[in-house]
Write a protein that binds this DNA or RNA. Structure first.
Length: 450
RNA sequence: GCCCUGGUAGUAUAGUCCGGUCUAGUAUAGGCGGCUGUCGCCCGCCCGACCCGGGUUCAAAUCCCGGCCAGGGCGCCA
């Protein structure tokens, strides 16, 4: 239901920000600042009013700090402003830092002036202090507010740190960041379903992968990467699928699967290391640990894993994809990062290169973390002739790929690449078990809002 | 798309098997009042709910059917 009411009581006189500028974030208020005047901006998270003394917990992006208002020691303007405060009001506080033994952080701020920038509805849809947990559905319906919770801020700071680590890692190794089209013409590219869109008078689709474009770019830019959203109109309704997800894609000229696997495991180690070091506070908030994995990661062939599964009583006919319950079993046997290599050619995409001495097997790989597929990649086919053959074998029409295929007339080098699902990576880094928790505004078959 | 489980105040839950003292209990949030060191503050009072539609019955939150929605699982998944 739409809440058209902006404020519960008579319209409150709001304050302008004026010449106030933030001097410190909440967490920067430390006992060493004792006696110093500071300006804080943020939101009221909690109010504990004991009558003669009132405690306001001010929250900002970085954390919280206690504002203490002793009734008889502050001026009447501060008192009346603090009387009006409610949870989630956006406020500014100018005050004096006071070192204290009584408060857990050893510091509080005694206000000299309070400015109220914005009010909030009194009955919030979820409990922002986390005393009464709400279900994910309720939280997602009130996502803008839900994202104010410390736990969620921690999740997205970790994701940000990971993306930053990945970008700088790839920049250092000479990869060029690119942006390929989200709107594409053809629906004939393969298995996964596409979302149709109206493109002027024509039908177009939302891209499900940058695969073909990044391959074309290796003949010019050689080493490219892209971080961006892609779309899959699948029926999937699981804890690890979204209709819109963020993919981290690389493609590298003059390289093989083994080269990009080494790059990938180094990147994973690097990312875990950076997150572990930079996000200690966030990981503590989430009560989660990130361990830095040793490299190289274990490499298992498809055949080896079929043997493992056989021992567990799960028989999979050779050539079939590994079903989800079997992956869960593998995750129990191998509770760490591992590669799966030597997949049957028929179980992988048309552009994955079959091995030279046995075309039944291909040079595709998956990077698993326990039972979750974090990344998949491989050596690509560089020969136009072979690519056309593989398209036909997959029941695809080479004519639909003519613009892609033309790149193979202009000196397509041997090349390889992979793609990481950012949200799945974030699940691993945060310990969250539902992909919707690590997505700001998740899109799935049933959810299109907010 | 299929299977299982569920849908009770803003939120989270009890009650559902075995229909009737359910005028629907509790916690938290919200409103009002009190309290000078709280940090899940405390105390008192108040407000507030049985997903929608149909059926069975003297009587339905409770049983049956359909729908919608959610969680989990499966399938689908360059």
């Amino acid at each position: 239901m739409l809440n058209l009411q902006t404020s519960r009581r008579e319209p409150m006189k709001l304050d302008p920000i004026g010449d106030w500028r933030r001097t410190h974030y909440s967490v920067e208020i430390r006992p060493e600042l004792d006696g110093q005047e500071v300006i804080l901006f943020g939101w009221v998270q909690e109010i504990r009013d004991l009558g003669g003394i009132r405690f306001i917990i001010l929250q900002d992006r970085e954390g919280t700090v206690q504002i203490t208002i002793p009734r008889k020691k502050v001026c009447s303007e501060v008192l009346s402003k603090s009387d009006a405060l409610q949870k989630r009001y956006s406020i500014g506080v100018k005050g004096i830092v006071k070192k204290t033994e009584i408060t857990p952080r050893g510091v509080e701020v005694i206000p000299k002036e309070i400015r109220i920038f914005s009010t909030a509805t009194p009955q919030l849809p979820i409990d922002i202090t986390g005393k009464v947990p709400a279900q994910l559905e309720v939280r997602l319906d009130a996502r803008a507010l839900d994202l104010c919770r410390e736990e969620n801020i921690a999740i997205f700071k970790i994701q940000h740190t990971a993306v930053e680590a990945i970008r700088s890692f790839l920049f250092e190794r000479g990869f060029i960041e690119v942006h390929t089209p989200r709107i594409i013409a053809s629906a004939t590219e393969g298995g996964a379903a596409l979302f149709p869109v109206d493109y002027f008078e024509r039908k177009a689709f939302l891209a499900q992968s940058p695969q073909l474009y990044k391959e074309q770019l290796v003949i010019s830019l050689e080493k490219v990467f892209e971080i961006g959203p892609f779309f899959r109109a699948e029926e999937s309704h699981t804890r690890r699928h979204l209709s819109e997800f963020v993919s981290i894609d690389i493609e590298q000229a003059f390289a093989s699967a083994e080269d990009v696997m080494q790059l990938l495991e180094q990147l994973m180690q690097h990312t875990c290391k950076v997150v572990r070091e930079k996000c200690q506070k966030e990981l503590a908030t989430l009560n989660h640990q990130v361990n830095v994995p040793d490299i190289p990661f274990k490499r298992f062939t498809y055949d080896q894993l079929l043997e493992d599964l056989k021992k567990e009583g799960i028989e999979i006919p050779w050539g079939e994809d590994i079903p989800t319950p079997a992956f869960r079993t593998l995750g129990k046997i191998h509770p760490y990062f591992y590669f799966i290599t030597d997949w049957p050619t028929r179980s992988k995409a048309f552009y994955i290169k079959p091995t030279d001495n046995n075309p039944e097997i291909c040079e595709g790989f998956d990077l698993m973390w326990r039972w979750i597929e974090l990344s998949s990649g491989g050596t690509r086919i560089a020969s136009k002739e072979l690519l056309i053959k593989r398209l036909r074998e997959k029941g695809l029409n080479p004519e639909s790929f003519k613009y892609h295929l033309q790149a193979f007339d202009y000196g397509m080098p041997p090349h390889a690449g992979w793609a990481i699902g950012l949200e799945r990576l974030t699940m691993m880094l945060t310990g969250k078990k539902n992909i919707r928790e690590v997505t700001l505004y998740p899109r799935d078959k049933f959810r299109l809002t907010p």
